[in-house]
Design a binder for these strands. Structure first.
Lengths: 138, 138
DNA sequence: GTGATTGCAAATCTTTTGCACTAAA
DNA sequence: TTTAGTGCAAAAGATTTGCAATCAC
């Protein structure tokens, strides 16, 4: 588990994305892509890294998250003023947002499919469609 | 145009919402609700107020926007990290977001209707569904 | 070696807050 | 009056940036 083995894929993944597999990027990538799909803020990822014994600065976490996003490894999700989430699921999908806890959850694709979309205004094209279902407590 | 006439409705509107029709709130309400539907940031509204010769502090603009939102006169829309828009259209509707200019535009209701939604997870109810179509330049 | 990456601290930007002052009822 | 509302300046958060030190290749 702590061998070099699990880094194999990650190194390739970073290289393919044009990013040098530095110690920090690898450690962050491992936390992000190691397990299931996740929705994390920079702050949260930074805390996880420190807990895992990875020395990395918050600035580098921000930089890495944006680099991963530009490279298409992550998706940035904005649902609250003043806070960005980074989603490891880059498939086409949508979100539940729990207003009370501020957490995000993927909506299974088959449960929400947009059948018809408006045309993009002339001179533009649709880059992405985000559906957020905001949930409050009963 | 600068008579007291146009304030009649606004005064009633604020009073109905449980807000004292102060000079600042009235002026802001006039800018917000005077014409067509708008999408404004606090900063933008503050600038407009100053241009219109209304002396009001940015803090009061923020306060008023949130009070209007709580009162159901406005809707807060979050599409970009670190910036909130306030939408004078409180009907059920969705948005185009122009990524290059950072501006919002309503999508005519009939052009995007969600036919099926997932059930709300137990213990929660759907407070709102936001669809944002992100547009980039061709 | 050399250019990319990192860490730190300072800067920036939006938004909120505390509190004395002012205005609406 | 009396209580809500306002303005200011300071504080708070999240994020970014500049630059010297460090690391990957």
């Amino acid at each position: 588990m702590t061998t070099k083995r699990p880094y194999r894929d990650l190194i390739a993944r970073l290289k393919d994305a044009g990013l040098r597999p530095t110690r920090q990027r690898l450690a962050l990538a491992k936390l992000l892509f190691g397990a299931c799909d996740r929705h994390l803020t920079a702050e949260q990822l930074h805390a996880e890294a420190l807990e895992a014994g990875v020395r990395v600065s918050l600035a580098t976490v921000y930089n890495s998250l944006h680099q991963f996003t530009s490279a298409g490894l992550l998706r940035e999700v904005v649902v609250e003023p003043g806070r960005s989430y980074f989603d490891t699921n880059i498939e086409d999908h949508h979100h539940f947002f729990y207003e009370d806890s501020g957490s995000l959850q993927d909506i299974p694709t088959e449960q929400l499919r947009l059948t018809s979309l408006p045309d993009a205004p002339s001179g533009t094209r649709i880059a992405r469609v985000d559906v957020t279902i905001r949930l409050s407590k009963n």
